[in-house]
Amino acid sequence: MTASEKIPRGTGPVRITDTTFRDGHQSTLATRFRTEDMLPIAEKMDAAGFHSLEVWGGATFDVATRFLNEDPWERLIELKKRIKNTPLQMLLRGQNLVGYRNYADDLVEAFILEAAEAGIDIFRVFDALNDERNFEASFKAIRKAGKEIQATLSYSLTENRLGGEVFDLKYYIDKATIFRDMGASSICIKDMAGLMNPYDAYDLVGALKAEVGLPVQLHCHYTSGMASMTYLKAVEAGV
């Protein structure tokens, strides 16, 4: 049992990860939420029954330090004090951590251990190219910290629909299988450009669940206006 599985969470048939405190304002407000904007509502968010709350990582770290004159570590610690029942998760850029270049393995380990100590239960790890080599050091450190590894499939296309010479079902199943064998306990399909067609979501989620055997989550953006229907078909497939 992973650390986050010991924490009570929603028991409904569909588990929802809320990203308001991370991607919600990163994608709509240039990541300009301040800690003081989050703390008053944190306990109510905790009581809502979410599967997890994504509160850290991505651009929140560098924006806090460069533009908001805030300590991102203090934000995480203060949120953890108030959110006691719902697992907290972060978006980790693999070997890039929360920056824009590759970092040394010892720094990757030190950062992840500190993040786990400060309150992160689930590490959603992604690499834009789905290159498993950029997951190795972070997965090892997350296991050392006793936390949950959620491996991310960065979704992309070369055709109008899922398929073609590169991004077909086999590509995503093969990558997810590699991530599972490296120690991931769940898979997140990250549709960061809003490209996923609803029926492709149905096929991909179903195939991953059948072939890989791990829980599957889906994170969509609304760039194309399809996300609502994409989520619906993904739920039908068992996301």
Rank of each mutant, 00 (worst) to 15 (best):
L153T: 00
G213H: 06
T60H: 04
I173L: 09
F111W: 12
F21G: 01
Q217Y: 11
R161K: 14
F111Y: 12
K6A: 13
G146L: 07
E109T: 14
M90A: 15
D168H: 06
I83Y: 03
I173T: 09
A128H: 14
T177V: 10
P198Q: 01
D191H: 05
E159F: 12
Y103A: 08
R75N: 05
I122V: 15
F21D: 01
A110R: 12
I178G: 04
M196D: 05
D71I: 08
E109R: 15
L97C: 14
A237I: 03
T177L: 07
R75G: 02
L195D: 01
E236S: 10
D23N: 06
K144R: 12
M229S: 11
V212I: 09
G24V: 03
L107F: 15
R161S: 10
A118P: 11
N197P: 06
A104C: 08
L169A: 05
D191A: 02
N130D: 03
S224Q: 03
K44R: 15
R143S: 09
T223Q: 13
A48C: 11
L97W: 01
H219G: 03
V216I: 15
K80L: 05
P215S: 08
M196W: 02
A151W: 00
T11E: 15
A30Q: 10
N134Q: 12
T152I: 09
T152L: 09
D191Y: 02
E78K: 15
K175T: 13
V108I: 11
A184S: 08
Y172L: 04
S154P: 04
A210H: 11
I7S: 12
S186H: 01
R34W: 12
D105Q: 11
M192A: 14
Y199V: 09
A30G: 11
D106V: 05
G10D: 01
M90T: 14
S4P: 04
R15Y: 05
L91C: 03
V125C: 07
K144Y: 04
G10W: 01
E148P: 08
R66P: 07
Y100V: 14
A104H: 13
Q89P: 06
V55H: 01
R32I: 07
I189T: 00
T60L: 05
M192V: 09
N69W: 08
K84E: 14
S154E: 08
G164I: 06
T60G: 11
D71T: 08
Y222H: 13
G57R: 02
D200R: 09
G164P: 13
T35E: 14
L76R: 11
T177F: 05
A118K: 13
F61K: 01
L29I: 04
I122Q: 02
